[in-house]
Design a binder for these strands. Structure first.
Lengths: 187, 187
DNA sequence: GTACAGAAAGAACGTTCGTTCTACTATCGA
DNA sequence: TCGATAGTAGAACGAACGTTCTTTCTGTAC
């Protein structure tokens, strides 16, 4: 079972995602992706209209993974209050372990200023979903002013991801403490 | 008095700063900067060793502006508690009015993954200064646990800048409310 | 067996990238 | 007046960019 066992399209997306996240999008050329994915140019352009489509697919994949986290956490049972606790803990752990280079969506937005582009549309969809989902969790947990708290938690998650990247792990402590305080959880 | 009155170096930096912030760094070529600044290639390479030096100068300029804000606010007098209030208000206003495309440093970091590069060094210096300065303000204002509060305020400021860019002005309300609450100010 | 689709391989397109270079001109202090 | 300095103007560099193309191979379904 060689490294090229997976389907070309999957290798392409996997490689692109890794490189885009680690080195920035404009900083990674198509040639580089093709070489590391061991996929030829023609194959890539059969699966994706161009580089930007690859970027969109990368972000949509990222979005799907995060939605998956929430589905698993929601299905796991436990009280609503406990779910809120696990969400906060999950964000901190995710930042510390899997997103040491910051938030893929925030990073991509830095490189794509055009509000009307497809890239920004994906980012927008993800953020809207996240904000709404978090508000639902807060409401279910009987948090006073759930909308306000959810909005603040969204801010804090952005900050936690940026903070781990630029300032190191210690911000996760600040994130946990601040988030729990806002949500009215035991400190 | 034509548009090219200012010294070439100043025009260069002004133009580069505007373009880098508005469109991202890797997305803006040297040719573009030269054309809009009405400066020739040779002149640019006389003042700056290369594009990266222009990026560093852009970020250092941004850093200097923000330090200037704090100097003015500090010299203006008023109680320490009032200074803390003005700092929070200043961050919100700055995000809403002058940084609608997010934080220049966070955006630049998204495009420069190399921790050892000069770009990341400038970013690091800025963030360290900001964190320390904010801790000093909190301490002077007799905020309980000033270190913790300052750390949380840094997180919130990152989030406010990102939030205004990607979600719109309404996050400044969340920022103000959350920041004031953490700092123990009247809501 | 034949036909067809997907993938591999690689040449080539024109454009832009950052950078270097030469040559000419304007300014200003020594 | 001379010579250094800084700016203008524009050609040119090799490399990388994203994209398109033709050709060959290899399965698999009819």
């Amino acid at each position: 079972m060689s490294a090229t066992t997976a389907a070309p399209r999957d290798r392409l997306l996997e490689t692109a995602a890794t490189l885009f996240y680690a080195e920035g999008i404009k900083g990674v050329g198509v040639d580089r992706i093709l070489a590391e994915a061991k996929v030829t140019r023609a194959t890539m352009y059969r699966h994706f209209p161009g580089k930007e489509a690859l970027v969109v697919a990368y972000l949509e994949r990222e979005d799907a993974v995060i939605r998956g986290y929430f589905e698993v956490a929601g299905a796991a049972g436990g009280s609503s209050r406990n779910l809120l606790e696990r969400v906060i803990e999950g964000i901190a752990e995710d930042a510390r372990r899997y997103h040491r280079r910051g938030c893929p969506f925030i990073n991509a937005a830095a490189e794509y200023p055009d509000v009307d582009g497809e890239v920004r549309a994906v980012i927008d969809r993800h953020r809207t979903w996240f904000r709404d989902t978090l508000a639902g969790v807060c409401k279910a947990a009987d948090v006073p002013r759930p909308g306000q708290v959810a909005a603040a938690l969204v801010l804090l998650r952005d900050a936690a991801l940026v903070g781990v990247y630029l300032d190191g792990d210690r911000v996760t402590t600040t994130f946990r403490r601040t988030a729990r305080q806002l949500a009215g959880l035991a400190t």
